[in-house]
Simulated scan of single mutants.
Amino acid sequence: MPLLPITLTVFLHEDLKDQNLNLLCSHYFDWLEDHITVISGRDMNTEFIKPSDAPGISSIDYKTEDLQHLLKKFNAEVVLYVKNTNGSFENAIHKYMLLTRDIINETTLGVAASPGAFAVASITDYFTAAHELGHMLGASHEDSGDVTTYHGPVKSLMHATAGDVGARFSQINEDNIRRYLGQYD
C-alpha cells in the first residue's frame, strides 16, 4: 500500500498578487518538494491558491506581534475555505501556508504550528517557507545542527539565526520528520 502523499496548499497573500507564480514555485517550493519526498518516501505536491480565489485568507492582516492569534485566524479561515469549496481533509496529509511579501514583525519572518497544519511565511528570505514547513512536519530548532553541502558546512534549514543556511534538514530533523509522518502509515 502506497504511503499517503503530502499536500501543501499555499495561499498567496494579496500583497503577492503581482508575483509570477512560476517563479514563486521554482524558487521556494520545487526543490523543497523533492527534498521532502527523498526524506519521507512520500509524494509531496504544492498547490497555489490565488488571492482572488480565497479573499478571506489573502486579506488577513498578518503583521502582528501576536503570533498565536495570527495562526488561529489563519486556521479558522482555512476551515471556512475548505468547507465552502467542498474540499476534503482525506486521502493526503494536508498542510496550509499563507505566503506573504513582508515579514510578520521586526523579528519574525514566519510562524508555524509545530507540528501542525498551519503556517505563515514571508518571501523575504529564500528558506523561510521551507523552515516553517519543517516545523509543521515535526522538525525543531533544537535539532538543527550543521549540514555539509557542496560549498562546505553550513547551518541546516531549521537553524533559528541568520547566516549561511543550506537547503537541507539535519539528520536528526530528517528523523523527526519521518517519525512525525509515520503516524499516518
Rank of each mutant, 00 (worst) to 15 (best):
M1S: 15
M1I: 13
L4V: 06
T9M: 10
T9A: 07
V10I: 14
L16V: 02
Q19E: 11
N20Q: 09
L21C: 03
N22L: 09
C25A: 13
S26A: 09
Y28P: 00
V38N: 10
I39W: 00
I39L: 03
I39R: 01
M44W: 01
E47M: 09
I49L: 01
I49C: 00
K50S: 12
P51W: 09
A54K: 02
G56S: 07
I60K: 09
I60Y: 03
Y62W: 10
Y62C: 06
K63R: 15
T64H: 08
E65N: 15
E65I: 10
D66R: 15
L67A: 05
Q68G: 12
H69F: 15
L70N: 03
L70W: 04
L71M: 04
L71N: 06
K72R: 11
K72V: 11
F74Y: 06
V79M: 09
V79Y: 08
Y81M: 04
T85L: 01
G87P: 07
E90N: 14
A92V: 11
A92M: 07
I93H: 01
H94G: 08
K95S: 11
K95I: 07
K95P: 04
L99P: 00
T100V: 06
T100K: 01
R101F: 01
D102H: 07
D102W: 01
D102C: 03
I103Y: 11
I103C: 13
T107K: 11
T108D: 06
L109V: 07
L109R: 11
V111P: 04
A112F: 01
A113I: 09
P115Q: 08
A121F: 07
S122R: 04
I123P: 00
I123F: 00
D125P: 02
D125V: 06
Y126R: 14
Y126I: 11
A130V: 02
H131E: 13
H135Y: 04
M136R: 00
A139V: 06
S140C: 09
H141W: 07
E142T: 11
E142C: 06
D143N: 15
V147C: 09
T148C: 06
Y150Q: 14
P153I: 15
P153G: 01
P153K: 15
P153Q: 13
V154G: 02
L157V: 07
L157H: 03
L157W: 05
L157P: 08
L157R: 04
M158F: 03
T161Y: 15
T161C: 12
A162L: 14
G163Y: 03
D164T: 13
V165C: 12
G166D: 03
A167P: 08
A167N: 10
R168I: 02
F169G: 04
F169V: 05
S170D: 08
I172K: 15
N173T: 07
N173V: 03
E174D: 09
R178D: 03
R179V: 10
Y180V: 12
L181Q: 08
